[in-house]
Design a protein around this nucleic acid. Sequence first.
DNA 1: CTGAAAGCGCTTACAG
DNA 2: CTGAAAGCGCTTACAG
Lengths: 334, 334
Amino acid sequence: MKSTTIYDVAKEAGVSIATVSNAINGKGKVSKKRKDEIFKVMERLKYQPSVIASALMGKKTYTIGLLIPDVSNPFFAEIARTVEDLAHSEGYSVIVCSTDNRDERVEKYIRLLEQKNVDGILIGTGMENSEILAQLAEKDLAIVMIAREASSIAVHSVVTNDFRGGTLAAEHLLGHGHTRMAVLAEDMRVTSSLERVRGFRFGLFEAGITLGEEHIETCGSGIKDGKRATVELLRSKDRPTAIFCCNDLLAIGALQAAKEAGVRVPEDLSVVGFDDTILSTVTNPSLTTISQPMDQMAQLAFNLLMNPPESSEIKQRIIMQPELVIRESTGTLQ
Amino acid sequence: MKSTTIYDVAKEAGVSIATVSNAINGKGKVSKKRKDEIFKVMERLKYQPSVIASALMGKKTYTIGLLIPDVSNPFFAEIARTVEDLAHSEGYSVIVCSTDNRDERVEKYIRLLEQKNVDGILIGTGMENSEILAQLAEKDLAIVMIAREASSIAVHSVVTNDFRGGTLAAEHLLGHGHTRMAVLAEDMRVTSSLERVRGFRFGLFEAGITLGEEHIETCGSGIKDGKRATVELLRSKDRPTAIFCCNDLLAIGALQAAKEAGVRVPEDLSVVGFDDTILSTVTNPSLTTISQPMDQMAQLAFNLLMNPPESSEIKQRIIMQPELVIRESTGTLQ
DNA sequence: CTGAAAGCGCTTACAG
DNA sequence: CTGAAAGCGCTTACAG
């Protein structure tokens, strides 16, 4: 069943398609009477303008792309939801793209999004090779990075002060008297993770404690990875009394490893996560973690995407402050 | 910067745009030599065909819509990821639509998807008013329901035997000697929840136990809802010794309520969830739950969407079997 | 095997 | 205020 087109309503209303188009878009001048007539016909015929056709004429597609490592990771699922709601309220749809932080996927997705003429891309994924981004930045496609750094490429970005987040974690742990600590870092592609580690290290450094390379475990970013790495740590002779994990998933893995090893949290081991996802409220003990103001970040990023600043040469970089959320997984050694 | 069009490559290759189009689509006959030439030019010019333009000619948009209650709910986030991967591997993008099970949202999203000419819609959301669906079913848009029933409307669907799932939960709990049980049901819009309750009831009935209406709490579908309802239940005089929750989120709420009330799980109270999301592995105690073969379901639903059976009059209804996953939240009363 | 031409459903100057 | 016409970037018969 062919759907009704602008021709159908034009014929039905006894006007030209140009007039119908003008009426719909509030362009040109159309007499009130004609306009009412047209709208009545549109209603009767259940006419819905084709986004495809109007996009072909250089109008928007009312679609944006959201690149994230993985929607099934609660942190990104929450971002996706927020972005989706914002977009929806402005008539946009969002195409979700899980990249697993893999360059081929990033590249393939971006190409797909370009072919579909999306109006903008929100990038919250890490990537090895920023060439892809560099190429993108040269086209006139709107791009905003969210919760990730765009090393050296000129794009707008909304990020959390990850360094500060790491330092917050360090200070909290130091406050509980810990001195032998370890870090679970995500893999090198995610720049935010690196910053967190740096910040953590800096916090310890300020307190006169050095965190050796051997106490930084670079693992994946899932629960299993965190568990595996923690099993290692707990086995070592100078076992740490506290672990800072660069995301909540890793922290949960740490919790599980501790439980299996009979190590009590927080009595024998403190664990700090990052992101403050729903998961951190669900574990037992619940997770002390560093939170980012995700809703605000999504809001700002979306706005930047839709209404880029006039002077397009200057790229904005909005930095949000993280917060320490104290729950049950941290405490003083007993 | 205008992107390169088929005209650019045609001119560059010294052929007509028709020939370029044919070469790309493998239509008509184009001599090997010309074809090679054309592809070389395309590469050089970094030509990417416009999906928009070809969609306007009645071709596919290579985009599908996924309607779910909420991407930030891990169960649906996992579905979204699976669907996304399947779609992506066939060159499709997926527009994720979180409906909160609210009709206005469902309606608005569907309209949006129609205007964008998506090639199909996967529906995993509940809705009060099936009229929307009925209207949709009349158009020639491909639709498949996943993990939700389409009451009385003729559409393809891939569902879990929710009734059986409820019964499995009942049998498991009965096996541990429980007799005073309660149910946390999601709200009425989600038909799957109703089936689960019915199945649970049936299981008890077969064992000669009647589950009164007063032991069925209809709440929302989030953690908070589950917690609130459980607080109520634990307060009642003939407090239940086991609770069957229609999803994992509710079950987690139950766990939290129990913890706060000093009720031990599973010693004093058993809790069974549904869905087997990542959350169920993360709680402490971890959650006994009923799992659905989500990957398979997504796979089947996607196939049905892309390759609907010939005789389009007959709608398929694929039913998957749920499984009991025993973890730590259930046991014999002590 | 290849190209000229029509058309998909819109929007946008441009006349009137 | 309103309409005829061109054009967006493709695909598809139809000739040759």
